[in-house]
């Protein structure tokens, strides 16, 4: 079984097993890519956190802690007018399917453990879509746009100086 056609054309693809050992590697990878795409450090951290939360949810709820199931992660820069304006991240699995409408973060006024992961993903990313894959399993598509910042052009790409990342 492989990842779906929806991942074809991704700039980077990663396949990992559903073991928590590998979440930090995926996180570091996403952080490194977002940094190079020009995201501010806090955004890099938060996008990596969103990916980590998504992976944890798949491992815990989708695969019910089975550590040897496949997860695919793919990354594309979002481009507008030939320049990078953000990042799209797709995560797919073969876990049990659930209705996308059922995937909700919990109400935050209700302070209790659990149910925070989806809230974090939706809070951090600009666009979040859950779908059932026709081949089985679920697909999560997340998009984050670069924020225009002082010292950057309209796309938010850094032009050097304070706050820019090499």
């Amino acid at each position: 079984m492989t990842s779906a056609d929806s991942m074809k054309g991704a700039h980077v693809r990663m396949e990992l097993l559903s073991s928590p050992i590998y979440t930090s590697g995926a996180r570091d990878f996403v952080q490194a890519v977002t940094r190079r795409l020009g995201f501010a450090e806090l955004d890099c951290n938060q996008i990596a956190l969103a990916v980590d939360e998504a992976l944890c949810n798949i491992m815990r709820h989708g695969y019910e802690n089975k550590p040897d199931q496949p997860i695919w992660l793919a990354v594309w820069p979002v481009e507008e007018g030939g320049t990078s304006s953000g990042i799209q991240i797709v995560i797919e699995d073969l876990a049990r399917q659930i209705e996308p409408a059922m995937i909700k973060g919990r109400e935050l006024h209700d302070v209790k453990p659990g149910g925070l992961g989806v809230h974090v993903i939706k809070e951090v990313m600009d666009k979040v879509t859950y779908e059932k894959r026709p081949e089985g399993g679920m697909r999560l598509t997340m998009v984050k746009h670069l924020k225009p910042a002082p010292g950057s052009d309209a796309t938010g790409r850094c032009e050097g100086g304070k706050g820019c990342h090499a």
Partner: peptide
């Protein structure tokens, strides 16, 4: 820290 870590602290607060 991610949300499983935060959840343990929420549980501890309770």
């Amino acid at each position: 820290m991610n949300t499983p870590g935060v959840a343990t602290l929420v549980e501890s607060l309770q």
